[in-house]
Amino acid sequence: MDFSLLNIDTPVDILNQAMQHSLIGSLAIKIEKIGSGEVHASMPVCSKTTRPDGILHGGSSLALAETMAGLGSMLLVDMALFDVRGIQINGSHTGSVREGSVYATAKIVHQGNQTHVWNVDITNKEGRLVSTIRVTNMIVKKNG
């Protein structure tokens, strides 16, 4: 996929297919819905996303959040002219999950010219908060 053509109208099945051969595909992260300033995704709780004792790994939750915030920022800028780079992530894990999937909602809370700040809430299937994560992305002008 040519990410310079990425925009809010890009079908989620195309996005999911383009990300299969990366960390995103390895963790089986699935983009469910995109909108202006909002991204929804899911991730299974399985052997690839858990600690050895079967509990969802906090690092998997952080990877899910950074994926969503990065994609969200990419949808808000002209990717032919700019690149998006995650520069800070801070997460608080408030619960644990052993089975099923987790569901994440990313919402932009600051959309500046040089930085975007996103809040990502991850819940279990019942809607109980598992993690809340803040991601800051830097918007970098591409050279030539």
Results as ranks from 00 to 15, higher is better:
2 D>L: 15
3 F>G: 01
5 L>A: 12
10 T>H: 08
11 P>Q: 11
11 P>N: 12
12 V>D: 00
14 I>K: 13
17 Q>L: 10
18 A>V: 02
22 S>R: 09
29 I>S: 00
30 K>H: 08
31 I>P: 00
37 G>W: 11
38 E>W: 06
38 E>Q: 14
40 H>F: 12
42 S>W: 07
42 S>N: 10
43 M>Q: 05
44 P>A: 14
44 P>C: 15
48 K>N: 02
52 P>M: 08
53 D>C: 14
53 D>H: 09
54 G>W: 10
56 L>I: 13
58 G>R: 07
60 S>V: 07
60 S>D: 05
61 S>C: 13
62 L>K: 04
62 L>R: 01
62 L>D: 01
66 E>S: 06
70 G>L: 03
72 G>R: 01
73 S>D: 08
73 S>Y: 00
74 M>H: 12
77 V>D: 04
77 V>C: 09
79 M>Y: 06
80 A>K: 14
82 F>D: 03
85 R>A: 14
88 Q>W: 01
90 N>T: 13
90 N>I: 13
93 H>K: 11
95 G>D: 04
97 V>K: 03
98 R>I: 14
101 S>H: 14
101 S>D: 07
106 A>W: 01
106 A>H: 01
107 K>Y: 03
109 V>P: 05
112 G>L: 11
115 T>W: 00
117 V>Y: 00
123 T>S: 07
124 N>A: 08
124 N>W: 05
126 E>A: 08
127 G>Y: 08
128 R>E: 05
129 L>I: 12
132 T>N: 11
132 T>M: 07
134 R>D: 01
134 R>S: 10
138 M>L: 08
138 M>N: 03
138 M>C: 02
139 I>Q: 02
142 K>W: 06
143 N>E: 09
144 G>H: 12
144 G>Y: 03
144 G>M: 10
